[in-house]
């Protein structure tokens, strides 16, 4: 159970780096950042706009979602 429970849930976007291989993203929007700083910056910008949460995977991929 997380915040903004009255709104839509799901994965909205993923912010990847060049070494990430993403075969399919479904309806989610996937961005590729130049470096780690840009990845973090883009992640925050999208999460703020969507009022969503951020999940950092152990391989470095950032997923923006609402649970």
């Amino acid at each position: 159970m997380s915040s903004e429970s009255n709104k839509a849930t799901g994965i909205f976007a993923a912010v990847a780096l060049s070494h990430h291989k993403i075969s399919g993203s479904g309806n989610a929007f996937v961005l590729e950042a130049r470096d780690l700083d840009e990845q973090n910056q883009l992640t925050i910008e999208i999460a703020k706009a969507l009022k969503a949460d951020v999940l950092k995977l152990s391989n470095g991929l950032n997923i923006i979602l609402r649970a």
Binding site: S2, N40, T43, I44, A47, D53, V54, L55, K56, N62, I63, L65, A67
Partner: peptide, 21 residues
């Protein structure tokens, strides 16, 4: 703990992916 939230060692969430959160 990093991006994870614990309350008295009980795992609560791993949705704290940003420093702000």
């Amino acid at each position: 703990r990093n991006t994870e939230l614990y309350v008295e060692n009980i795992f609560i969430s791993n949705l704290l992916g940003t420093e702000n959160a």
